[in-house]
Design a protein around this nucleic acid. Sequence first.
DNA 1: GCCAACGTTGGC
DNA 2: GCCAACGTTGGC
Length: 151
Amino acid sequence: MAYWLMKSEPDVYGIEHLRQENTTLWDGIRNYQARNFMRSMAIGDHAFFYHSNAKPPGIVGLMEVVETGLVDPTQFDPASKYHDPASTREKPRWDCVRLRFLRQFPRLLPLETLRETFSAEELGVVRRGNRLSILPVPDATAQRLLTLLEA
DNA sequence: GCCAACGTTGGC
DNA sequence: GCCAACGTTGGC
């Protein structure tokens, strides 16, 4: 089972929303590297929920991948900010996964603490200027994270 | 294929 | 508001 880190702005879609909905389609990803990471996800993988553009930014929860290889419907919707006129139903460019709420941690683990604890190799999100909204988390890092988040 | 200009993410 | 770190676009 692999671990991932997935960013979302809490004002747009935060852990509270997921807790209420139980599952969500992680749509709107328009970066090929992030898309390719989603494509390599497997059902049962776990993902850390990261609040970006938050005060402070940090990890707040844990999710489970419950469906993979889903077409992102927003690419066909002219009213959506994620509309992609170059994408066709025959050859969709963007896809997504479905995630299920597993838990919300007792406290947010701030980026500042992550920077003090992990190198950029151990946890890519601590790299300055990192813009990737989906990142793989090495297993050893994930285990240390879970310990920190329980405390 | 190169590269300058421009756009986006996201921390601070 | 600023800026770092990219990704994308388009002229050539």
